[in-house]
């Protein structure tokens, strides 16, 4: 009942939520006319301390950008390409060398000694590592779609969820608003590591959520692998790799179960969805021993693979899945946006 009212304010009220609504009512938006566009937008005074902080931040930012050798990319026009190192090449859709702007169907290529920065439309940037090739499939208003044909791409995107998509030979990476690194070879084997936000990996009906602080491999012909925390032990990484290589292997499931702990419930929850019906009970038992499911999520519902029950359990689990970068890394990422 509470959830119904939480979703739909016209449903039967939940007394506790009503109490919160009443408390918060004075903070709600009150219609006021929009000021004229010519009105100065800042009315708050800026103190000397703020100016000093601004100057210091500018110096740090400039130094950071300079150190990274990316200052040329700071003001790129949409789909412009800049060299970070060496001499990356831009080709048009016909394969001919093009100027420093990527067009639909065109590619950016780097060799072993070069790297590039691409302005992803107006929504962010993608840094292309050495030995990489990135193709622009679609720059339409509804979505921006790239194909990472090989190599490594670090994307920093500020756009509505599902607006920025990157295709590899084995899976589609759907941006849900974030910073991530994707690597893939020409056959689609690779790795996704998410630093901020969330990326969904899709192949057919396989759908894997990779949240900040987690990674997942991509496998040719098999699509996305099990997600695991970036901080996972070598033992868990090896176990996940074994499962990704042979999901039907009972031994591989056993290895993951043995290596998983309270910090890797993201792996166990996804394993619950991916394991064979025969193995599912063992996975349920292991996950339930670490994080008991909510009362409505019964063993029977989970073993039947009931989507609602799995999602409900995930709701309780997923707050522990996100591991944001340390403050200095967040500062660094913010500076480069």
């Amino acid at each position: 009942m509470a959830d119904d009212y939480l979703w739909d304010p016209t449903a039967a009220p939940d007394p506790e939520i009503e109490r919160l609504e009443a408390l918060l009512r004075p903070a709600a938006y009150r219609a006021t006319p929009l000021r004229a566009a010519e009105t100065p937008t800042r009315r708050r005074s800026i103190r000397i301390g703020a100016w000093a902080a601004l100057a210091a931040a500018t110096v740090v930012a400039a130094a950071g950008l300079s150190l990274a050798g990316r200052s040329r990319a700071a003001h790129l026009a949409p789909w412009a390409v800049a060299a970070a190192h060496g001499t990356p090449v831009v080709r048009n859709s016909a394969g001919a060398l093009a100027s420093g702007r990527l067009e639909r169907g065109g590619v950016v290529e780097t060799d072993a000694r070069s790297s590039a920065v691409l302005a992803v439309g107006r929504i962010g940037r993608a840094e292309l590592g050495p030995d990489s090739r990135l193709r622009l499939l679609d720059d339409a208003a509804a979505e921006h779609r790239l194909a990472l044909e090989r190599g490594t791409m670090h994307a920093s995107i500020d756009a509505p969820p599902r607006y920025f998509l990157v295709q590899t030979a084995s899976a589609l990476a759907v941006d849900l608003g974030c910073v991530y690194t994707l690597s893939a070879d020409e056959r689609g084997n690779g790795l996704l590591t998410v630093e901020q936000g969330e990326v969904e990996l899709q192949m057919g009906d396989v759908n894997v959520a990779v949240l900040a602080g987690n990674a997942a491999s991509l496998r040719n012909g098999r699509g996305p692998g099990l997600p695991y925390p970036v901080s996972a032990s070598d033992r868990l990484r090896r176990a996940v790799a074994a499962f990704d290589a042979d999901p039907a292997s009972d031994a591989a499931v056993g290895q993951v179960l043995a290596a998983a702990d309270a910090h890797s419930t993201i792996t166990l929850w996804h394993l619950l969805r991916r394991a064979s019906p025969a193995a599912r009970e063992r996975v349920y038992t292991r996950l339930a021993s670490i994080a008991p499911p909510p009362p409505t999520v019964t063993r029977e519902r989970v073993l039947q693979g009931e989507s609602g029950a799995l999602q409900r359990w995930r709701t309780d689990l997923q707050s522990s899945w996100v591991v944001d970068p340390p403050w200095w890394r967040q500062l660094w990422l913010a500076m480069r946006r």
């Binding site: 939480l6 979703w7 739909d8 304010p9 016209t10 939520i17 919160l20 609504e21 918060l24 709600a28």
Partner: peptide, 10 residues
């Protein structure tokens, strides 16, 4: 948005 601005889930 839900509790303060009274927006529905949809």
């Amino acid at each position: 948005l839900r509790l303060v601005e009274q927006m529905g889930g949809e």
